[in-house]
Design a protein around this nucleic acid. Structure first.
Length: 555
RNA sequence: UACCCCGUGGUGUAACGGUAACACAGCGCCCUUUGGAGGCGUUAUUCUUGGUUCGAAUCCAAGCGGGGUAGCCA
């Protein structure tokens, strides 16, 4: 059984436990540092669950910090969405461990600047006038910039004028003076500040120089008293620079330390922000919260719960091996939770009408139905039964294949919670399409009746026609039709054409009072959640995930 | 090419020098008024070669394979 109550074990948690045991830190402090240039997705969820998981397990705090150092890519809209999504994900789980939120790297711009001036005074940074192309070329060759040996006074003056807006974009940079020949290229005098005359979503036009990631991130961590700065593998080679900055500035202990883990990859999906933005901008999906998107807002809209997402993060684990998790694991995690919690209801997605010729016209019975066989406390409900019903069109075949044990001409099937019926007659329209089935019902076969125990292989779901309520149901499937849409060049051509199908379903009356927070199993079909598009007049349902379908495999 | 990191069933993880295990997926059976759930069984694993050791998935070395980095993005 999957739970999130067990404390996971992984190399990061081992380090944290060791540090605490050794008294290296009094309390641990982690952080989740998104750049507000897109929506957070399930890969971020892994990171959020790691960072907040650590702090709740070891008694610390975790800051949410917008890493907003690049004004031309970042927007306030994204800050909003990120906060909403993170809070939703950790609500009731780690929300007590949020360090006062949100923090912004941009709030530290003045301090970053002071530290930069300090670095120049220490002779460990210089203003460089080379173009970006020259810088690249020199760095590749391990060659020193012509401007590397400027005097401290000149550097101070130039840097002040950079800040004052005296130079054009790209004209100069502030660079750390480390080692132009270092084996690790991030130590070859990396750029710390660049000139960008652009409005920032929070600081407006106050600045025209903006700090680079390494400078801002390291100092933000230090300023906030972060103990364990956990990031993904691609920052591994930046760690020596992270450590260099802290020691070059001679910042007092305790200092933060950076650790890296492998980001989440999932089959049948793309995860890069760039590709998600393309899907949205090119209208290949209906926005960031399209239920087919693996954004947190998309998953939420689809009906996935925060606890299921957390369970998924737990199941996936934390390592340094760049693995790809099977989408089936995510799907299993959903089913596992919903099976335990979701109330069962009867709904027919693709209705075909049935008339019970020997059942009295006008008679309505209220039959007992079990709300959740996994949870006796969920109780029972009444379901109306009458002469005219709908069943799933998949549950009838005129010439069925072997091992098909649903309804067929002359065959019998059990209607769940009701009677056994026999198909006597198939009614077709002029085009030969089956439009109605005329059946007889074994009136003794109801629960508790004399023939209730008759062995019938098939049991199908149904809805009484007169009492049924119509609802729009959106049937979602995996967005991509191949396991690795990233592998080839054009991921957009690999979108699953059947990733969304919309039907008008016939639902049992109890569904009229369905609650948006609840998850429902439409028996034999899958788990469903109400979409925000629902109105009082018309419900809109999203299929979160189908039930396992072993029959589909037999076919 | 250089530097860094990583290699455990099909997939994802555990085992922290002492019997290689769990989950997902697959297959088979049982059960079932959900072809769901559940139960039972089953297939299949330490990249290679050396070394250290009484003993190696674990430590060391080399090789091979994979990933990352080489933006004035983060």
């Amino acid at each position: 059984m999957t739970t999130t109550t067990d404390h996971p074990s992984d190399f990061i948690r081992d380090i944290v436990a060791d540090d605490l045991r050794a008294g290296k830190y009094k309390q641990i402090c982690a952080r989740f540092p998104p750049e507000p240039n897109g929506y957070v997705h399930i890969g971020h969820a892994k990171s959020i669950c790691l960072n907040f998981g650590i702090t709740r397990e070891f008694g610390g705090i975790c800051n949410i910090r917008m890493d907003d150092t690049n004004p031309i890519k970042e927007e306030a809209e994204y800050v909003e969405s990120i906060m909403t999504d993170v809070r939703w994900l950790i609500d009731g789980w780690a929300d007590k461990h949020v360090g006062g939120a949100p923090f912004y790297a941009s709030d530290y711009f003045d301090r970053f600047y002071e530290h930069a001036v300090d670095l120049i005074r220490k002779g460990k940074a210089y203003v460089c006038d080379m173009t970006s192309e020259e810088t690249d070329a020199y760095r590749r060759l391990g060659k020193a910039s012509h401007f590397r040996d400027r005097s401290i006074e000149e550097n101070l003056d130039l840097f002040a004028r950079m800040k004052a807006g005296k130079f054009a974009d790209g004209a100069r940079t502030l660079r750390a003076k480390i080692d132009v020949n270092a084996a690790n290229v991030w130590l070859r005098d990396p750029v710390l500040y660049r000139i960008r005359h652009a409005s920032h979503h929070r600081t407006g036009d106050k600045w025209c120089i903006y700090p680079m990631y390494d400078w801002a991130h390291t100092l933000s961590d230090y300023i906030e008293g972060i103990t364990h700065s956990v990031c993904t593998l691609e920052f591994e080679v930046h760690r020596p620079l992270y450590d260099w900055i802290l020691s070059a500035l001679e910042l007092p202990e305790p200092r933060p330390h950076q650790y890296e883990f492998a980001r989440l990859n999932l089959t049948y999906s793309v995860m890069s922000k760039r590709k998600l933005i393309q899907l949205v901008n090119e209208k290949l999906v209906n926005g960031w919260d399209d239920p087919r998107m693996l954004t947190i807002s998309g998953l939420r809209r689809r009906g996935v719960t925060a606890s299921a997402l957390r369970a998924f993060a737990y199941n996936v684990g934390i390592t340094k091996y760049p693995s790809t998790t099977d989408m089936a694991v995510l799907e299993h995690t959903m089913r596992d939770e919903f099976n335990r919690n979701a109330a069962r209801r009867l709904a027919v997605l693709r209705p075909i009408k049935i008339v019970l010729t020997n059942y009295p016209e006008g008679k309505i019975e209220e039959l007992d139905a079990i709300n959740n066989p996994e949870d006796p406390k969920a109780g029972m409900r009444k379901v109306p039964f009458s002469r005219e019903l709908y069943i799933e069109s998949d549950d009838f075949m005129e010439t069925p294949p072997p091992k098909y044990f649903r309804l067929r001409p002359g065959g019998e099937v059990r209607l769940k919670y009701a009677y056994i019926i026999k198909c006597d007659e198939v009614v077709k329209d002029d085009a030969g399409k089956v439009i109605e089935l005329r059946c007889t019902v074994d009136l003794d076969s109801k629960s508790g009746g004399p023939t209730a125990a008759r062995k019938i292989k098939g049991t199908i779901h149904w809805v009484s026609a007169a009492q049924a309520i119509d609802a729009e149901v959106r049937l979602y499937d995996r967005l991509f039709s191949v396991p690795e849409p990233d592998a080839s060049g054009d991921f957009k051509s690999l979108i699953n054409p059947n990733s969304l199908e919309v039907v008008t379903a016939k639902c049992e009356p109890a569904l009229a009072t369905a609650h948006p927070e609840e998850r429902y199993q439409f028996e034999r079909l899958g788990y469903f959640a109400l979409d925000p598009d629902s109105t009082r007049e018309k419900q809109v349902w999203n299929r979160t995930i189908t039930l396992r379908d072993t029959w589909a495999k037999v076919k």
